[in-house]
Simulated scan of single mutants.
Amino acid sequence: MLPRRARFLVVLDADSTLIRNEVIELIAAEASREAEVAAATEAAMRGEVDFATSLRSRVTALRGVPLESFARVLSRIEPTPGVLELTSAVHARGGAVGVVSGGFHEILDEIAPRLGVDIWRANRLAVEDGRLSGVVEGAIVDAAAKAAALLEWAEQLGIPARRTIAIGDGANDLLMMAEAGLGLAFNAKPAVRARADLVVGRVDLSQVVPLLP
Rank of each mutant, 00 (worst) to 15 (best):
L26H: 10
S88K: 15
A28L: 11
E36L: 14
R7D: 11
I159A: 03
L157S: 08
E152Q: 11
A149T: 15
R56N: 12
T60C: 08
W153D: 01
G170H: 10
L2I: 00
T164K: 06
V208P: 09
A178N: 10
P66L: 03
E48F: 10
R93W: 07
V135C: 00
F51G: 12
L125Y: 04
R5Y: 05
E78I: 04
L184W: 14
E30N: 10
W120N: 00
L157G: 03
E34Y: 02
V209P: 13
V203S: 06
R56T: 06
M177D: 06
V117T: 08
A126M: 02
R20P: 04
L211N: 12
A194G: 04
E68F: 05
R63Q: 15
A147D: 00
D197S: 14
G94E: 09
A112K: 04
A161C: 07
H91R: 15
P79T: 05
A52P: 07
L86K: 12
S206V: 06
L150D: 06
V203D: 09
R33A: 14
V65C: 07
E48T: 09
G98L: 06
R121E: 03
A38M: 07
V135G: 00
R72L: 06
L150Q: 03
L157A: 09
R163K: 05
R114W: 00
P210M: 10
F70N: 02
L157F: 05
S54K: 02
S101E: 06
L157Y: 06
M1V: 01
A14T: 00
V83T: 08
A191E: 13
E34H: 11
A149V: 13
A148H: 09
R195P: 05
A139D: 07
A144C: 01
V203Q: 13
P79I: 03
R202F: 03
P113H: 08
A61R: 13
L74Q: 02
A122N: 03
L18T: 12
P79Q: 08
P81M: 06
A52V: 13
D109E: 15
G95E: 02
T17C: 14
D197L: 04
S57N: 12
A149N: 04
L132R: 01
N172W: 05
I111N: 08
L62S: 01
A126G: 01
D109W: 01
A180H: 13
R7A: 11
A35V: 12
V100N: 03
A139Q: 03
R124V: 08
F104Q: 03
D15Y: 10
M177T: 10
E68Y: 08
V203M: 07
A180S: 11
L26C: 09
R56G: 07
R193D: 01
A112T: 10
R121T: 02
I77N: 01
S54E: 05
A43E: 13
T60H: 14
E42D: 13
I167W: 11
G116K: 04
A71N: 02
A171G: 14
T17F: 12
T60K: 14
E106Q: 14
M177I: 09
L205Y: 11
R5F: 07
A145E: 15
E152I: 00
H105A: 04
R5K: 13
P213Y: 13
A40I: 11
A61V: 01
K189W: 10
E78H: 14
